[in-house]
Simulated assay, not measured.
Amino acid sequence: MRIPRIFHPEPLTVNSEVFLDEDAANHVGRVLRMNAGQRLELFDGSNLTFAAEITQADKKRVKVRVLDSQQDDRESPLHLHLGQVMSRGEKMEFTIQKSIELGVNVITPLFSERCGVKLDAERLAKKIQQWQKIAIAACEQCGRNRVPEIREAMTLEAWCSEADEGLKLNLHPRASHSINTLPHPVERIRLLIGPEGGLSTEEIAMTAQHGFTDILLGPRVLRTETTALTAITALQVRFGDLG
């Protein structure tokens, strides 16, 4: 049986004993039905992994002893900040999960003119919490030991106007630049992915005012969730650690 990887939200130290948080304890105790004496691999966001042994397990609480630690850096040299206009249903969850597997560092959900998602403040806060849990689960699955941040949602213009020293990119079907024509080297990228209906003419003009470069992925029209993952993959191949 593969040793399960579990995220622990507090800093870990060798030879300490800790209780897993509620979600992790439920997964280990109820779903996996693990018992005292079995091994886990923990990570706390510090880029270390920790070998641990279960010392107590029941339906509500799981206690572990941290045995040792080692450095395990799986982060790309390219820092990617994804600004994703929110999409409906499971599409946003899919985008978050897969973009984290591909190495994105920060994700900011965005509202735009043609955004089809309408949420009040309470429901939006719950969504952010849910998306952060998806981020954690994606890291547990893909082996990353730093958990990307899911930021609070904001308007497209507010996000575009934030100070950022990196390259700013916006996907546009009539752009003159492709990813392969972008100059080397690039260490930081702020990538904007619009809604299912695309950005308005005014929004595209606004992104240009804030220093965004329009780029073209190819001749075919892609869905918003396909666009994000295709662009991230191409950027990681050119500037990051894929390929």
Rank of each mutant, 00 (worst) to 15 (best):
I136R: 01
G166S: 10
D72K: 15
V106H: 05
F19Y: 09
I179Y: 09
N180G: 10
D58C: 09
G45H: 07
I54L: 14
G218R: 08
V85M: 12
G29E: 01
D164M: 06
G197F: 06
P4M: 12
G218A: 09
E122Q: 13
I3P: 00
S176H: 08
E225V: 05
L242W: 03
G198H: 04
L124K: 10
F111D: 11
H79M: 12
M154C: 15
E22Y: 09
I6K: 06
K118Q: 11
V62I: 14
D21K: 14
R61W: 07
D241S: 07
F50M: 06
G45Q: 06
T230V: 12
A36F: 00
H210T: 06
R74D: 06
V221W: 05
I193G: 03
Q236N: 15
D21C: 14
P4C: 11
T233F: 01
I3Y: 02
E75F: 00
M206V: 12
G166D: 11
N26M: 08
I189G: 01
R223W: 04
L167Y: 10
D68Q: 12
R123Q: 12
L102A: 13
W159G: 00
I128V: 15
R61I: 08
N35Q: 15
V18G: 02
R5N: 14
Q56A: 11
M34R: 07
T230G: 12
V62W: 00
T201C: 01
T13G: 08
Q130A: 12
L192A: 02
V14E: 13
Q132P: 01
E187N: 12
R39E: 08
E75H: 08
L67W: 04
M34T: 04
E202S: 12
T230C: 12
L48E: 10
V18P: 00
G197Q: 11
T49I: 14
A36C: 03
Q56S: 06
H172W: 08
G240S: 05
A231Q: 05
S87W: 00
D164F: 13
E41G: 02
D214P: 05
V85I: 08
T49G: 06
P185F: 11
